[in-house]
């Protein structure tokens, strides 16, 4: 599979773009960069068990124990796995009403989640309810645009986290949706919502330029796209720079393939989302290359075109 794909890519490059050599080439002096396997979920909504066999559209799908088995299998085949969640872990089945999210967090910990952001429904047990479940988490939550300074979560949620995967530096940050009128104030209390475009740009630049991350990922619970100008993953992608990948949530969008948009520098941003309820496990396999001067595909393309 890989060999065919590689040949296909090289053929495409040669015929389609008309570059002579080297883009994906194996120059002997080139250091081989590790592959990264990003697994992701969003809006799992307390779906511990698969959907019941009741004739519904999703019957028999999902289930934490099956997802865990798949993750285990992938880990046995891949060296550098990052397992991420884009929020709305809570709410939707009696497991949440009964146990306040304890089981959801314990399961994610056992599956080896690396990081998650906070969705609007993660406040459904109150900010105190979320805080109460943190001891069950062996992974961190990140949000770059919720200011928790005057809440019980003060100091418990960072804006981002940097992972080192076999020498690759991957910066991951979180963005959450406006809570006002979506979540009762008595639940989120003094959580302050900050502009996701401003905060997102700030942290992405820091990760890309100061921290020199090889890859910058945003875990977003803003929603994929809206008819009006409401801030969304698409708006974020097009109005910022330094974000490579946006793993989204909130709109429960099943995307058959990622949406690719251009950022303010004209670079491509990949947006992906995998529906809801743990029906899908998102997987992006990424190969990296050293980009030597003049060998950037898009730069070359624009030169040819101009």
């Amino acid at each position: 599979m890989t060999i065919n794909r590689r040949q296909f890519i090289e053929n495409s490059i040669l015929t389609g773009v008309g570059l002579s050599t080297g883009i994906l080439g194996k120059l002997p002096t080139e250091k081989v960069l590790p592959k990264l396997c990003i697994l992701h979920t969003n809006d799992v909504h307390s779906r511990i068990e698969p959907f019941p066999m009741d004739g519904g559209r999703n019957q028999g799908l999902g289930g934490a124990a099956r997802r865990a088995a798949l993750i285990k299998k992938i880990r046995s085949e891949e060296q550098n796995v990052l397992l991420l969640d884009s929020g709305d872990i809570f709410q939707g089945t009696p497991y949440f009403n009964f146990f306040g999210g304890e089981l959801e967090i314990k399961l994610m910990s056992q599956m080896g989640y690396d990081l998650a952001t906070i969705g609007n429904h993660d406040f459904d047990g109150g900010i105190d309810g979320l805080h109460k479940q943190l001891p069950h988490a062996n992974f961190d939550f990140v949000s770059a645009n919720y200011n928790f300074d005057n809440t019980i979560l003060n100091g418990k949620v960072n804006s981002h986290k940097i992972f080192n995967k076999a020498g690759l530096k991957v910066g991951v940050f979180g963005l959450g949706i406006e809570l006002n009128s979506l979540v009762p104030k008595e639940l989120y209390k003094e959580t302050q919502y900050l502009d996701p475009l401003i905060q997102g740009q700030k942290i992405a630049s820091r990760l890309k330029n100061d921290e020199k991350c090889d890859l910058v990922i945003c875990l977003s619970h803003l929603g994929y796209n809206y008819r009006d100008n409401k801030v969304s993953d698409v708006v974020l992608a097009q109005n910022t720079s330094d974000i490579d990948i946006i793993l989204g949530g909130h709109t429960h969008t099943f995307m058959s393939k990622p949406d690719i948009r251009r950022n303010t520098k004209g670079e491509e941003v990949i947006i992906n989302q995998v529906g809801w309820a743990g029906i899908m496990l998102g997987r992006l396999d990424i190969e990296f290359e050293h980009a030597k001067k003049g060998k950037c595909v898009s730069c070359k393309n624009s030169l040819i075109n101009s």
Binding site: I9, L33, N272, E287, H290, A291, C296
Partner: peptide
């Protein structure tokens, strides 16, 4: 570095 190839 840059992304050379991304498979979904």
């Amino acid at each position: 570095t840059y992304i050379a190839d991304l498979d979904v």
